[in-house]
Simulated scan of single mutants.
Amino acid sequence: MTLFSERNGYKSVQDTLKVECMDIDLRTSLWNVILIHVLDGTEPDDDYYQCYDEIKTLITKLFRVYWKRSLDELTEYTFFPFRAIKSYFFDCKWCEVYDFLEILVKIYPFPNVEEFTNECNDVLEMEHSGYRFVDISIMEITSEEEIIEIEEALNDAPNPVKIHLQKSLGLLSDRESPDYSNSIKESISAVESVCKQITGESLSLGQSLNKIEKNGIIDLHPSLKNGFKSIYGYTSDSDGIRHGLTDEPNLSYEDAKFMLVACSAFVNYLNAKWNK
């Protein structure tokens, strides 16, 4: 379900795609992966001596190499490893959550570390984080430059174009039922809409680009024009009607995000050239 703030552009692109931030839903979902794969069988009231050997080793290494705390705290009967880990996880900065996940992968003896990282990636995708595990390191998949392109298009584009981009972002970021095919359609519709504004005619994207080039409205490089005509063909049938994506089973978050970024960048490019 896309919420009011996302539909109407009141929530920033950075917050929507969760870059340099982390909401409680994402943090809790990642914590649940840790509960299943690391802390299963460990109780909140277990002191250090009651914990499994794996948890003793983990908490000792965390004290020595990550938290840099005194090891004699571990022997106190008022110290509870489960509570210490949970308290840190929910109180630390957003970036330290990702640090902690990387540390876990490197120091905890997972029977199958790939299973843990895959489940983390499932959560990161479901909650629309801008980061993923790549091997045993967490990498950014949504750059600041991409966010700037989307935000510039949302801020500067005419209303019909902006509406298409807002819909695309909303469909992409819907946590309960993301609609990648329609997000892609809205992204390409934004480009089509800005071309209609430039030509003053209700033409398909391919026809608009041809007219823009032929009439010298904008000096478009042929490769750039043909590239976007090909993208338009990917989203449309021979009549220019976007039915082609409806039955596409393999569309992903990455596909829809690429189209949103690429179309936002092209909208910005066309606007800049047109307004010169």
Rank of each mutant, 00 (worst) to 15 (best):
M1G: 10
G9F: 01
G9C: 03
G9T: 07
K11L: 14
K11M: 11
K18Y: 02
K18L: 05
K18C: 06
E20Y: 12
C21Y: 05
D23L: 11
L26Q: 05
T28F: 03
T28H: 03
S29G: 00
S29P: 02
L30P: 09
L30Q: 09
V33D: 00
I36L: 10
I36T: 14
V38L: 05
D40Q: 13
E43N: 13
P44N: 08
Y49N: 15
Y49P: 12
Q50C: 13
D53H: 10
K56Q: 15
K56R: 14
L58K: 06
T60K: 14
F63S: 10
R64P: 01
V65A: 10
L71M: 12
T75V: 10
R83Y: 09
A84I: 02
I85S: 07
S87G: 14
Y88M: 05
Y88C: 01
F90P: 04
C92D: 01
V97N: 04
Y98I: 05
Y98E: 03
L101R: 08
L101W: 04
E102Q: 14
K106G: 14
I107W: 08
Y108L: 03
F110V: 04
V113C: 07
F116I: 05
N118H: 08
C120V: 09
H128I: 03
H128P: 00
F133I: 05
V134P: 01
V134I: 13
D135E: 15
I136W: 11
M139H: 13
T142W: 03
T142E: 06
S143R: 05
E144N: 13
E145N: 15
I147N: 01
I147S: 04
P160R: 04
I163P: 03
L169E: 02
G170M: 10
E176S: 09
D179Q: 11
S189E: 00
A190P: 03
E192R: 03
K196Q: 01
I198L: 03
I198K: 09
T199S: 07
E201D: 11
L203Y: 02
S208L: 00
L209M: 08
L209S: 05
N210H: 10
K211V: 12
G216R: 06
I217N: 04
I217Y: 04
I217L: 06
I218H: 02
D219S: 14
D219H: 11
L220W: 04
L220Q: 07
H221P: 11
P222M: 09
L224H: 13
N226V: 02
I231G: 06
I231T: 06
I241N: 06
R242F: 13
T246G: 07
D247E: 09
E248I: 09
E248N: 13
F258A: 14
M259W: 07
C263G: 05
S264G: 01
A265L: 01
F266A: 12
L270R: 12
A272Q: 15
W274F: 15
N275Q: 14
